[in-house]
Write a protein that binds this DNA or RNA. Structure first.
Length: 885
DNA sequence: CACAATTGACTTTTT
DNA sequence: GTCAATTGTG
């Protein structure tokens, strides 16, 4: 990671005042010093507010930057400005973001502003966590760690907790490790250690042993020389508090602090920032302005130990902290973000300058109008109103569409996308933003069917995949033989005949000897405490690790990684795996090796993997993006589709149940984020029926639809422009509801469409299925329909299929029936020998060509060329002869 | 010990 | 409906 080199000296870099500063910057700094005030080109094109935000470098500044108002530009220009005017050296600037993506973006934009070549030491720019790691590596011993500590991800964390719960003799069913991991996360988000958590919280878990368990977990982490994500924030906080000399070191170092997405900070991050940004009077260092107008950075070359000349501090040092955020885009409350941090800024930092950026450069007046009107329904805002000075009468209004069910929704969106495409729009400029990821499937299915390129953003992360985590575990053990969690993960992967018993044995030995598990295993392999088989297996694997570790220093790390995966039998394991995703996994492993090339050593690679591994694939192709509203924050698209605006889904029922009013407001902010992603075209969809947890439920339109202003919205007369299927609801009822009242629409404007939406809770009303109830339901339908199912046999399927293919006018009953038919026919005709054989090439109307991977009765598992692996009934496919390849 | 059958959960997600 | 994780069986 450029700019994050750990060997970069801490304090001597800005020291050589005599050393020529990089060209452009030096020249500008010189100009600034000499009072020449020609506007530097990097300031050109900023509007007055933006310029103020850039040039108000001293003192606390809060920039309230609405969506699309040039927030990132302000941040990056501000950094460039500070550098160009010689106010600070790069290393004296700390810039914090939330995501790696944002960090990368800022880095490259700063690079562009000040010239790549000139970047001699970038600012400390990174996520809270990556900066936390950097701090912690330097001061690990103060937290009871060694500086080569490992970073556990959620998966490791959960497995560890599970062990602890079992060690306590507790039932890990009743006390789910995952739940406890979340509790710990929650505490750490608040900066609370085991001693500080509220009594109630402590009692709520593990028969009141919550606190002990938390403590045990922390102890275990120290033994393992490991940190979880929360610790990356909490340890530095604790170190800062306990060691003032360390904190002062950083006070001297960081002259300017910048924070992106301030509305998303949680309590721990807030404390972390406060510690760095607020300097107690008595320990204040020399204010730069105190040096007689000389704007050069203060000389901080003296090593900390040497000490600064302690001039009596006259006043608190101005905290040059600049936080940029938008309270209306706070959508991470559920994971500990405190909107309050931004609402409170002026109190926290007295004398703060607050700058509002309200001039929007992104969206049309209609979109802004809709978004503003919607968000105005929230209370407790700092209040901003976005405006554009480029209204265009040609702009399209925000479109609201209705669909019968999610399949029709997907179909209609698909057709709209194709229509835009025909109109010359690139797929890359379009996005579908959903509330919950399960909504993605119907779009994916549909797009595969019609051959529309799409990409899913923010799915399961690359490094979270099983094969990647396994491979990494091997590498982790090689790099650090004390990594027990990693060792345990792969001792028996691939299967080596080392089961529960053997692993417990290794555990016990490790504990008895006080060594890591790998060493214990080596020991055990030489003793006769194990049966011959596991013993041989252990001997082999420990010998392997020993050999790999020896090779670590004299083999290129990518090569070593390949060797390890080969020799351990790991790649063979997947090569022998017949399942459809095995080739993909092998491909991923190759990708992993490729990605290692960018790092100079195995160690540095592993460090980055833990924190910053996200693979963006398919970047090259033109494709529609599908993602959740959450992951869309910060992005923009020409055309945006927002499906699923129904009560219960959006706003989500659970947000309402658990968050009450504030939950609703967060959902509304999420809607606001969604609306403001669109530059030109915005289409909102809602459906009357949606399948949740396998059951069809009727739904009513989202209340957010009622909150859109009539003037900027156009309600589409149902999907009549999208193909010839019937309109299942009265299209005219859209128009009918328009009336007076405060809300320009009648309350039931969209309601009237919700055919069969009798039960008020809709899809997500509390009545919905517990797993048991649901299964009972399923059994019942199956039982009742078995009779006519056997009678009609394949006939029924074809009808069912025909309906799927040709029309959505059929009521939901038949849609339901289709599914049931699939089930029941499969069971009733199970004995009939299949006309197909494994490996045969077949054609399916919906999924195209594919090869049969497996046959069970009349159910075929087929690897489709385009659609991947699907299970279908044999009557749906035909031999692919004649259906050209 | 390995595999198949069964059970249960299931909003959002970064690091 | 789908997934993973756990339980029961060979």
């Amino acid at each position: 990671m450029p700019g994050f080199e750990d060997d970069m000296p801490f304090f001597d870099e800005p020291a050589r005042a005599s050393r020529p500063a990089p060209g452009g910057i030096a020249a500008r700094a010189m100009a600034a010093r000499q009072g020449r005030s020609a506007t530097p080109d990097y300031l050109n094109g900023l509007n007055p507010e933006q310029r103020l935000a850039v040039e108000t470098t001293e003192g606390p500044v809060l920039v309230l930057a609405g969506a699309g108002t040039g927030k990132t530009r302000v941040l990056t220009t501000r950094i460039a400005h500070i550098l160009a005017t010689g106010r600070a050296f790069p290393s004296q600037i700390l810039a914090v973001t939330f995501t790696n993506k944002a960090a990368r973006e800022m880095k490259s934009r700063i690079g562009m502003l000040i010239g790549e070549g000139n970047v001699e030491g970038m600012p400390w720019l990174g996520t809270f966590h990556s900066i936390g790691v950097k701090l912690l590596r330097r001061h690990a011993e103060l937290a009871g760690l060694r500086s080569d500590f490992t970073i556990l991800d959620t998966d490791d964390q959960v497995r560890l907790i599970k062990q602890l719960i079992q060690a306590e003799g507790l039932d890990d069913k009743r006390w789910a490790p995952r739940v406890f991991a979340q509790m710990i996360d929650g505490w750490k988000n608040k900066g609370l250690g085991p001693a500080e958590i509220p009594e109630g919280d402590a009692r709520a878990f593990a028969n009141g042993k919550g606190r002990e368990l938390y403590q045990a977990y922390q102890n275990r982490l120290l033994t393992l020389n490991a940190c979880d994500f929360g610790d990356l924030l909490c340890h530095p906080i604790r170190i800062f508090r306990a060691h003032h000399d360390v904190l002062e070191e950083y006070h001297r170092r960081f002259k300017y602090i910048l924070v992106d997405e301030y509305q998303d900070t949680n309590t721990a991050q807030y404390m972390w920032l406060r510690l760095l940004a607020q300097r107690p009077r008595q320990s204040a260092s020399v204010p730069a302005e105190g040096r007689g107008g000389d704007r050069r950075p203060p000389d901080v070359s003296g090593a900390p130990a040497q000490g600064q000349p302690q001039e009596a501090a006259v006043r608190p040092v101005s905290v040059n902290i600049c936080c940029v955020g938008d309270d209306d885009q706070s959508i991470y409350g559920w994971r500990g973000a405190e909107v309050d941090n931004i609402l409170r800024f002026e109190k926290d930092f007295p004398g703060a300058t607050v700058i509002r950026l309200e001039r929007n450069y992104r969206s049309t007046a209609h979109i802004l109008g809709a978004a503003s009107h919607l968000i105005a329904h929230n209370e407790g805002r700092l209040g901003k109103t976005l405006f554009t000075d480029r209204p265009d009468p040609e702009d399209a209004k925000v479109n609201v569409h209705a669909a019968w069910d999610s399949d029709e929704e997907a179909r209609a969106v698909g057709e709209a996308i194709e229509a835009y495409q025909r109109g010359g729009h690139a797929l890359n400029d379009m996005a579908i933003l959903v509330r919950a990821s399960f909504q993605m499937r119907s779009f994916e299915d549909r797009f595969i069917e019609i051959g529309l390129n799409y990409r899913v953003i923010g799915g399961p992360r690359f490094y979270e995949r099983q094969e990647i985590r396994d491979a990494l575990a091997y590498l982790r053990v090689v790099a650090n033989s004390g990594d027990d969690l990693a060792f345990e993960r792969i001792v028996n992967v691939p299967k080596r005949g080392l089961g529960e018993a053997a692993i417990r044995q290794i555990h016990d030995t490790a504990r008895a000897l006080g060594t890591p598990m790998l060493a214990a295993a080596a020991n055990l392999a030489e003793s006769d405490e194990l049966k011959p088989k596991p013993r041989a297996a252990l001997r082999e694997i420990t010998a392997n690790f020993e050999r790999w570790q020896k090779a670590l220093d004299n083999t290129p790390h990518t090569e070593l990684a390949e060797t390890i995966l080969e020799e351990s039998g790991y790649t063979d394991m997947w090569k022998n795996d017949r399942s459809a995703d095995a080739p993909g996994r092998l491909e991923n492993l190759k990708e992993l090796i490729r990605s290692m090339e960018e790092y100079e050593s195995l160690r540095s690679f592993l460090e980055h993997v833990a924190l910053v591994m996200d693979a963006e694939q398919n970047e090259g192709m033109d494709a529609v993006s599908i993602m959740t509203l959450h992951s869309a924050k910060g992005l923009e698209f020409e055309t945006v589709f927002l499906p699923g605006w129904e009560e219960g889904l959006f706003p989500h029922q659970r947000a309402l149940d658990e968050g009450g009013r504030s939950g609703l407001e967060e959902e509304r902010r999420l809607a606001y984020v969604g609306l403001t992603r669109a530059k030109k075209n915005l289409h909102i969809w809602f459906v009357s029926n949606r399948r949740i947890h396998g059951l069809w439920q009727s739904t009513i339109p989202s209340r957010f639809l009622e909150e859109l202003p009539e003037a900027h919205v156009e309600v589409q007369e149902s999907g009549n422009s999208y193909g010839g299927y019937g309109n299942p609801y009265g299209g005219s009822s859209f128009a009918s509801g328009r009336g007076g009242r405060q809300n320009p629409y009648g309350a039931s404007r969209f309601d009237s469409l919700g055919q069969g939406s009798s039960d008020k809770g809709g899809a997500f009303s509390n009545s919905y299925a517990t797993p048991g109830w649901q299964r009972a339901q399923q059994n019942r339908t199956e039982a009742t329909s078995r009779n006519w199912g056997t009678r009609s046999g394949h006939q029924v399927e074809r009808i069912g299929y025909g309906e799927t293919d040709s029309g959505y006018g059929a009521g939901r009953g038949s849609v339901k029936g289709r599914t049931i038919d699939g089930e029941l026919v499969a069971k009733s005709v199970a004995e009939t020998p299949s006309p197909f054989s494994v490996g045969e090439r077949v054609f399916h109307q919906k999924f195209g060509n594919g090869n049969i991977a497996a046959i069970e009765g009349n159910k075929l598992t087929i690897d489709f060329d385009k659609a991947g692996q699907k299970k279908v009934l044999d009557s749906f496919v035909e031999g692919s002869r004649g259906v050209g390849e």
